[in-house]
């Protein structure tokens, strides 16, 4: 499974398909940090929110790099559908972690965030919080990107429709006062959490919500992929 994960990541990089989402990530981060310095925690909350569609798109591109017949060959070689499916999701997660690393480092390089008055310890805590909130965006982004990939949707048009609809609904249904916030991953709620600095209980609930949503979406993805090789 690790070998197949590596093979898919190499194909993603060598075909140059990794460049477009990377440029998109840099573009949205430039817009975010171009207007002056912000508190690190709050900035990371907004960063995770705006990177969500980019991470989902990156996942779709990575999963679509492999020709359909090669994906089937990989399933036969790996010995089970589960291993082949998991290897694709792992590759998408690793690529997403690369994008997140850039998102965490960039604001410090361009002085887009204010250093913590408490010193280095405060800055490290802010980066750790930033990593956590980006992970809460990465898991559902990988799930949404998977549901939009060609193997599931069977056409480029359907894939784009799933991706755009999922990203828009995640924001619209996540707005404060939404009657059904549980229908979408807690991206907006996480951004509000980092801005307000709510307590540990909120952080725990957001984490549970993100895991449950991602788990459900990944279960649907896995079920569909078992019959859609």
């Amino acid at each position: 499974m690790i070998a197949l994960t590596g093979m898919r990541l190499r194909a993603f990089v060598r075909t140059g398909r990794s460049v477009a989402p990377l440029i998109a990530a840099l573009a949205v981060l430039s817009v975010l940090y171009g207007g002056g310095r912000a508190e690190a925690g709050e900035a990371y909350g907004a960063s995770a929110l705006i990177l969500f569609p980019v991470l989902a798109w990156q996942t779709k591109i990575l999963l679509d790099v492999e020709p359909d017949v090669q994906r089937r060959l990989a399933r036969v070689a790996a010995g089970s559908a589960g291993r082949e499916i998991t290897a694709g999701l792992l590759a998408a997660a690793v690529a997403g972690l690369g994008t997140i690393a850039i998102a965490l480092a960039l604001p410090w390089l361009v002085q887009g965030v204010k250093p913590d008055p408490g010193g280095l310890g405060g800055d490290v805590a802010a980066v750790a919080l930033g990593f956590g909130v980006h992970l809460l965006a990465l898991l559902p982004a990988v799930a949404l990107g998977g549901l939009a990939c060609r193997a599931v949707t069977r056409s480029a048009g359907n894939g784009v429709a799933v991706l755009v609809t999922g990203a828009v609904l995640a924001i619209v249904l996540g707005l404060q006062g939404s009657p059904v916030p549980w229908l979408v991953p807690p991206l907006m709620a996480t951004a509000r959490f980092t801005a307000s600095g709510s307590g540990a209980a909120t952080a725990l609930w957001l984490t549970v919500h993100a895991f449950l949503w991602s788990g459900a979406a990944l279960a649907v993805y896995s079920r569909l992929r078992r019959t859609r090789a």
Partner: peptide, 20 residues
């Protein structure tokens, strides 16, 4: 499916690794 960015040797080594 030849539309892949690997050389012959790299592809076969990768598939051998996938096979364990």
């Amino acid at each position: 499916p030849a539309d892949q960015p690997h050389t012959v040797s790299a592809y076969l080594h990768a598939m051998a690794a996938v096979r364990g």
